[in-house]
Design a protein around this nucleic acid. Structure first.
Length: 284
DNA sequence: ATCGGGATTGCCT
DNA sequence: GGCAATCCCGATG
């Protein structure tokens, strides 16, 4: 079998490692847990901490809006992952991309193309679309209004569960590699899937009603003027659609995966800075 | 059955 | 900042 021959040589995580990472065998060391709790307290302070509220979960109505509007609306909201042991992992969405379907050549659903893989893109708004990329990684999208349209989640600012996230991410890295900084835990579409333990089989689930993953409203919303609009990442080969500003991120947030300085200057020449939770609590 | 490319990441220079 | 790793999916014959 070819796989067993190459298994040992791989630098990228083996299938076994992936499985391990998603089964939650990883113990959290006491030291890290302590740090985790401290950060969680910070989040509550800065975030407003209205925990008494019945539920901040966003429902179907939220997801039922046009793709670009939803991609922007996602910014500042909090993605929550509840694992089997009850652990809740939280991250603020700081970077998204809109994939419109139809005319959008960079979309998996370009030209209305519908396959087994991308079926979730055509399902009701709020449906999760998880697909594998480059053989080893996953990306998570959420269906919006519009046929075949979906929003790619690109980056999160970790808010709760840093230690678990770090474990999940480290499981796929070289032994002895340096520990990841907080801002590196979820600063990429596949990194956030690893850190929040979002598995492939979440594909076609409903973000509005699923018990293991949901989206929460937050007190710190992305305000007008702090959202940068830039071309999407990694779609270079898709002609004029590659240039359209369909990527959105929170200006100044340290957890954004790829900055576009030119776009930032274009939108606000005065070099405005936005301090968000991430910047204040990141130590690097 | 086979083939080509990809909404990425991590490691090395 | 370059580039290899790695394999699934969809297209094609």
């Amino acid at each position: 079998m070819r796989r067993t021959m190459t298994e040992n040589k791989r630098k990228v995580p083996s299938r076994k490692a992936n499985q391990r990472a998603s089964e939650g065998e990883l113990a959290v060391e006491p030291k890290q847990r302590k740090q985790d709790e401290r950060t969680a307290v910070l989040s509550v302070c800065f975030g407003g901490g209205r925990n008494a509220e019945p539920s901040r979960r966003l429902g179907e109505d939220f997801f039922t809006q046009p793709c670009v509007a939803l991609a922007k609306a996602f910014l500042g909201k909090v993605l929550v992952r509840r694992r089997e042991d009850g652990t809740e992992l939280r991250g603020r969405v700081v970077e998204t991309e809109a994939y419109l379907g139809g005319e959008d050549e960079a979309s998996h659903s370009a030209g209305g193309k519908r396959t087994e893989r991308n079926a979730a893109m055509f399902m009701k708004p709020g449906t999760i679309y998880v697909y594998p990329i480059y053989g080893v990684y996953l990306c998570m999208n959420v269906s919006s209004e519009g046929d075949g349209a979906a929003v790619l989640l690109r980056s999160l600012e970790p808010l709760q569960g840093h230690a678990v996230m770090r474990q999940l991410r480290a499981a796929r890295r070289k032994d002895g590699a340096r520990a990841l900084k907080d801002k590196e835990l979820c600063n990429g579409p596949s990194k956030l899937c690893q850190a929040l333990d979002v598995p492939r089989h979440f594909d076609r689930r409903d973000l509005a009603s699923d018990p293991e993953v949901w989206l929460e409203d937050a007190d710190v919303a992305a305000r007008e003027g702090i959202v940068v609009e830039a071309p999407r990442v990694g779609v270079e080969s898709h002609g004029e659609w590659a240039k359209k500003p369909l990527r959105f991120y929170i200006r100044g947030n340290a957890c954004v995966s790829v900055l576009d300085k030119a776009a930032e200057r274009r939108e606000n020449p005065s070099n405005l800075r936005c301090q968000t939770l991430c910047n204040r609590t990141q130590k690097d």
